[in-house]
């Protein structure tokens, strides 16, 4: 492919055009988050002086605590999901025991069941287990719901690990758990990372479950806190956007730490998962 300058330039312009529109929401969020309502009314388009950094302090007062709640729920859910799914995937990948095939389909069938059909009976289960208004009401159903997909992906990876590596551990007298710790986990770190990030993002965006299952505002998640902030009758646009920024920052930070995992892991996983 020889580069012809004009054709090459038009490709760059097309991509830059798409990126421009993709960044519009981020731009406005950032720029408005530093305005007071008067500046916003006069000029919503461009940053204007002075910057109102106190918007962030005020927004933090309103949603800061809920960010910690969300982080706690997301991390516990993700850890639990990955630990259990690794155990399950190891079982399905390594053991041809009676009932294993049948059990596997029991898990896989769940991928066809739409969570939306579960909304009503799940509410009933949560209340009858006494989990209403606790973080477990979010953590346990999310962990259960994630098992099928995570087991499916991890099983494919574990099946591809060469037998020799497991033999080595068995010769040293190690059982299943040490095989998982010394062989499976080190080799599946990239895919575990990708699955982990997917899980954290899902929890960060989840607002239906906290809306239904949490009552106390000190337990509430950031998603519901943002909805409440947005729904207030008189809006302070700067504070609102500052709140959106604050709610996004933990995920942005996660992205900065795991950029390569994101760009490479997702595409590699996508190709493999076909």
């Amino acid at each position: 492919m020889r580069g012809r300058p004009i054709r090459e330039l038009s490709k760059h312009l097309f991509v830059l055009g798409l990126l421009f529109f993709a960044f519009v929401p981020i731009y406005f969020m950032l720029e408005i988050s530093l305005k007071d309502n008067k500046q916003f009314a006069v000029n919503p388009w461009l940053p204007t002086m002075p910057f109102h950094w106190e918007n962030y302090a005020l927004a933090w007062q309103q949603i800061g605590g809920t960010i910690f709640n969300t982080a706690f729920i997301a991390i516990v859910t993700t850890a639990l999901t990955l630990v259990l799914a690794t155990l399950g995937a190891f079982f399905f990948a390594r053991y041809r025991v009676p009932g294993a095939r049948w059990l596997f389909w029991l898990f896989m069938a769940l991928m066809m069941y739409p969570p939306v059909a579960n909304m009503v009976p799940m509410f009933k289960l949560i209340t009858s287990l006494g989990l209403y208004n606790t973080h477990f009401a979010l953590i346990l159903p999310a962990t259960a719901a994630a098992q099928a997909f995570n087991i499916y992906v991890l099983r494919n990876f574990i099946e591809d690990i060469p037998q020799d590596l497991f033999d080595a551990v068995e010769i040293d007298g190690g059982g299943a758990l040490s095989e998982i710790r010394h062989v499976v986990v080190p080799l599946s770190l990239p895919i575990l990372g990708t699955l982990g990030i997917i899980s954290i993002i899902a929890q960060w965006n989840n607002f239906v479950a906290p809306l239904l299952y949490l009552r106390d505002s000190n337990l509430q998640t950031v998603s519901v806190a943002l909805m409440n902030l947005e729904g207030e009758y008189t809006r302070d646009w700067g504070q609102l956007m500052a709140g959106y920024m604050l709610a996004s920052l933990p995920l942005i930070a996660l992205f900065c730490f795991c950029m390569n995992l994101f760009v490479k892991g997702l595409s590699a996983g996508a190709v493999k998962g076909e």
Partner: peptide, 30 residues
Amino acid sequence: THWAAYGLILLPLALVLLFEYQVIANGIVH
């Protein structure tokens, strides 16, 4: 080995039976 093996699947299975299959069955019945 089998015993250990079934032990691996025990927790994921329990969770899925309670928070998925029980819920699905309850939804169908209701």
